[in-house]
Amino acid sequence: MEELVEQLDINQYLPVIIEGATNVLLAAVILIVGLFIANRVNKIICNIGERYQRLDDTLFRFLGSLGKYVVLAFVAIAVLNRFGVQTASIVALLGAAGLAVGLALQGTLSNLAAGVMLLIFRPYKVGDFIGAASQFGKVQEIDLFTTILQTFDNQQIIIPNSQIWGSQITNHSHHAVRGVDMHFGVAYKENTDQVRKVIDEVLANHPHILKDPAPFVEVETLNNSSVDFLVRPFCEGEHYFTILYSVPEQIKKALDENGIEIPFPHRKVIIEKEQ
């Protein structure tokens, strides 16, 4: 009699045991397959960034991690669903939590969005000299939230990406050849052809100034007390600042040697004496 009762108890719980074991087995399979797919998605996305040089690795590593965790989130929901957990409430809770976090981190998310755009469109890269957000320097690092610049006086400036993406960006390193604009004034009595000849000689003797394209030297403005020349030599981008800070002194010395006056602003005052 007791054996019959035990047999009946086993038969009663056997479907439950089989169902539980099946759910555990299926959950394990879903988890293993999900982990494989998540890692595969991450690897595929990262490989895309490595395959093309114009694509930024940082962005694709982030996108790969994002894709991986999105897959894992669906895997977790599927596993819980196998055990009879109502996942609709969990999804709603996660959505509400995500909204709250998003509202709390609006500034951070705007930097993230700007960082993604900068890494996709790449208006500048590491090593470029740029002017952005009222700052100027050499780009040391670009990440998803900030851009780090190194200034000429060796300061580190960390700029939120949202400030850069929302303002004008000047990339001084984009083109291999650059023009260097300089202005020089001479007295009205001086012969402009002679002045141009002196300036041309200085530019022709400079080792970093290119012959092609040829330097531009022309009268730009007739000021109150001077005739102003616009001087624009061309050079490789790496020599831009060398020329900008060396040529003015050389032109000044050359003008002095040739007796050409560089005037300073002055005003003529006439005093009439009463009779």
Rank of each mutant, 00 (worst) to 15 (best):
Val116Thr: 11
Ile17Val: 06
Thr58Met: 05
Gln86Trp: 11
Glu238Gly: 03
Gln194Gly: 04
Val41Lys: 09
Gly107Tyr: 15
Gly115Arg: 04
Gly185Thr: 02
Val219Phe: 04
Leu31Glu: 06
Leu63Gln: 04
Gly64Ile: 01
Ala187Met: 03
Ala27Arg: 01
Gly166Cys: 06
Val198Tyr: 00
Val227Phe: 02
Asp200Cys: 02
Val41Asp: 12
Lys253Tyr: 03
Asp212Lys: 11
Lys197Ala: 08
Glu261Arg: 09
Gly95Glu: 09
His175Lys: 12
Phe36His: 05
Glu6Arg: 14
Leu26His: 00
Glu274Tyr: 13
Glu2Ala: 10
Ile18Trp: 04
Cys46Gln: 15
Arg267Leu: 14
Lys68His: 11
Ile262Thr: 07
Glu249Pro: 01
Asn39Glu: 13
His239Ala: 03
Asp9Ser: 08
Gln275Gly: 15
Leu25Gln: 03
Ala214Thr: 09
Phe229Leu: 05
Thr221Tyr: 14
Lys252Gly: 01
His174Lys: 14
Tyr13Asn: 04
Asn171His: 01
Ile10Gln: 09
Met182Ile: 06
Leu14His: 05
Asn205Cys: 13
Lys252Tyr: 05
Met1Arg: 09
Lys253Arg: 01
Phe36Met: 10
Asp228Ser: 04
Tyr69Leu: 11
Met117Lys: 11
Ser89Val: 15
Phe234Ile: 02
Ile199Met: 00
Ala114Tyr: 07
Val231Leu: 04
Asp256Ile: 01
Ala38Arg: 10
Ala104Pro: 09
Asn42His: 14
Gly98Cys: 10
Ala38Asp: 13
Thr221Leu: 12
Pro160Ser: 05
Phe229Ala: 04
Pro265Val: 13
Leu230Phe: 08
Asp212Thr: 15
Pro263Ile: 07
Arg82Gln: 08
Ile164Phe: 01
Ser226Gly: 06
Tyr124Val: 10
Asn258Pro: 04
Tyr245Ser: 03
Pro160Thr: 06
Lys211His: 15
Gln140Met: 13
Asn81Ile: 02
Thr192His: 02
Ile148Met: 11
Thr108Met: 14
Tyr124Met: 11
Glu249Asn: 02
Glu218Gln: 15
Leu144Met: 07
Phe136Gln: 12
His183Tyr: 14
Gly49Arg: 12
Leu210Ala: 13
Arg51Gly: 11
Phe234Leu: 00
Ile48Ser: 09
Phe234Asn: 01
Gln168Gly: 12
Glu272Arg: 10
Ala21Asp: 02
Asn111Lys: 11
Gln155Asn: 12
Gln12Trp: 10
Ala38Cys: 10
Cys46Lys: 15
Val24Ala: 05
Gly259Gln: 03
Gly64Ser: 04
Gly84Ile: 06
Val29Phe: 03
Ile10Tyr: 13
Ile45Val: 15
Glu190Tyr: 00
Gln12Met: 13
Ile142Thr: 11
Ile243Val: 00
Asn47Trp: 10
Gln7Pro: 04
Arg51Pro: 10
Val16Ile: 06
Leu59Pro: 05
Arg232Phe: 02
Gly237Trp: 03
Glu2Tyr: 08
Asn42Cys: 14
Leu203Phe: 05
Val195Arg: 00
Asp193Phe: 04
Ser226Ala: 12
Ile32Tyr: 02
Gly137Leu: 05
Val91Met: 10
His266Met: 14
Val16Ser: 09
Ile45Pro: 07
Gly20Gln: 00
Trp165Thr: 06
Phe36Lys: 08
Lys189Ile: 11
Asp9Leu: 08
Gly102Tyr: 09
Thr192Arg: 03
Pro15Gln: 03
Glu3Arg: 10
Met182Gln: 07
Phe121Leu: 13
Ile48His: 09
Ala254His: 01
Val75Tyr: 02
Lys138Trp: 03
Gly20Ile: 05
His175Asn: 15
